[in-house]
Design a protein around this nucleic acid. Structure first.
Lengths: 172, 172
DNA sequence: CTATGTATGTGATACTATAACATGTCAAGG
DNA sequence: CCTTGACATGTTATAGTATCACATACATAG
């Protein structure tokens, strides 16, 4: 049941460090899914069963999953079990902005802010593998400035950081 | 013949947009190689024939080469022709800071500033495939700020941008 | 109903990367 | 000198990631 999204109402959205903070993940996930459905309806994209299921799988945790991890899940649930099945669904989700590819991990993670224009940076914990989508507007601005200085026009950017999340840092 | 490196003396170093600017590439490449030799001597690392040759190959152009591209070159010149040969040499070069891995391309490019501490950002032209190592200190600072805001400690960062270099932009 | 575009199924293959173990090389210490 | 140990390379095999190409199904507009 899609519902209007009020960030103030959403424990997940309220925290910028979503992936690293305790939060109502069921809400967080169902909300992202609902927003994806709304966006698809608006733009006429088709959130088919496989695509929807892949998004659900990605939304289960704040980590990145490899295409073959996704594929194994799909296969065990009766969907196709050939690589293109997973890759095509993932490609669709990335195109629509419902998921992001994490270059460093050759893996994919659900987008926590579908529909909102954003230049994301990803914070990847090397211990617990949590992936957090950080606000990167200033980062992207600095990158644009550096590029503009040499006459380069940026079309897509990849900003990823590997390190320790607050919890794992404290544990160490 | 190794020589002392004076940036003011180096047409390459003078331009921040090295890869995109016309420059004395022979000088640019031989200089980077010479600096790598000096650094190896200083830290006791061994720039063996394969490693040196791989660095020379990477230095031939301001583009990124895949491990298998490098391997093919090596094989055609009588070095080993198994993947580990290339991967080990590339790993050494990256560890020593003589080369960088471009995550987006699964490829490697020679470092234009070996020995100088730098948090590089890479500008990748999608048309001519040139890769430029841009000054990214402000970018990295913005990223550190964003990470610190959520208590995340960055250990390694990947900052890459895909787009159009000045030449290709003009041509389009 | 059927033509068309889009999505999926499927087999094969290409590309990227590492494990594991054998062999070679070189320099320091006996 | 020679041995020993650390590092580098050679080689086989295999793991992991991604795409091609073609067949089939499915939904919707005309």
């Amino acid at each position: 049941m899609p519902h209007t999204h009020d960030p103030a109402d959403c424990p997940g959205c309220a925290a910028p460090d979503l992936a690293f903070a305790r939060h109502d993940h069921a809400h967080c996930a169902s909300d992202a899914l609902a927003r994806a459905e709304v966006i698809c309806a608006e733009v006429g994209a088709r959130l088919t069963p496989v695509r929807r299921r892949v998004l659900e799988i990605l939304l289960e945790q704040h980590q990145a999953l490899g295409a073959y991890d996704v594929l194994n899940r799909l296969a065990s649930e009766g969907y196709g079990n050939q690589p293109p099945v997973a890759y095509r669904a993932l490609e669709f989700l990335v195109e629509q902005g419902f998921a992001h590819r994490i270059q460093r991990l050759n893996a994919f993670t659900a987008c926590m802010h579908p529909g909102e224009a954003h230049a994301p940076a990803f914070l990847i914990c090397r211990v617990c593998s949590a992936v957090s989508e950080a606000a990167a507007t200033p980062v992207r601005a600095a990158l644009d400035t550096a590029a503009a200085g040499v006459g380069f026009v940026i079309e897509r950017s990849t900003i990823e950081a590997l390190g320790l999340c607050p919890q794992c840092r404290e544990a160490a």
